[in-house]
Amino acid sequence: MKPRKIVNEQEFQLTILRLCYQLIENHDNFNDTVIIGLQPRGSFLAKRITEELKKITGNLNIPCGLLDVTFYRDDFRRRDDVLIPQSTEIDFIIENKNVILIDDVLFTGRTIRSGLDAMLDFGRPKLVELLVFIDRRYSRHLPIQPTYVGKTVDTVTEERVKVSWKETDGEDAVYLFTSKEN
């Protein structure tokens, strides 16, 4: 079976814009707020959202960092292959800042748990919020809920959701793969 497209390009753009306006409601001019995208695929969303926010608010100094969580994961030595890290690029202080943690898909919540641990090694933020593009409901292993959600989808464990990005995949869209595909 072909993967099903559950978000097309137009919806994709609208969702990103809506998420930006929701962020602006809570963070005003972003003077005390930083954005951190989780590597690898949360970084695309983080960068996209930061660009849009800069256009909308006129504040060109919204800090956007990328955080790699590999060393903080809980499945090290429990997988067949060793996880190879990506780069962490956080060149600002998060102490006493509002942090918006960004990832593309929220599934079991384990990546976010690692992300919270990894982030705390950079300081003690005043507040942490979670923004995800896709929230896969009813599949959480940990008590983690997002603050901002692009789209909620109901899936079974065998299914897979992929957010595709123009930057790497040539298209802005979200696909749902049923079991045994890809």
Partner: peptide, 27 residues
């Protein structure tokens, strides 16, 4: 090359204020 690539990341880690990661905590 794989060791070098991984070491690049660890070099970042040891230059941070908190120079520690929990990867090998059960070893």
């Amino acid at each position: 090359q794989l060791i070098f690539k991984t070491a690049d990341n660890f070099k970042d880690v040891i230059n941070r204020p908190i120079k520690k990661v929990p990867s090998l905590r059960d070893i």
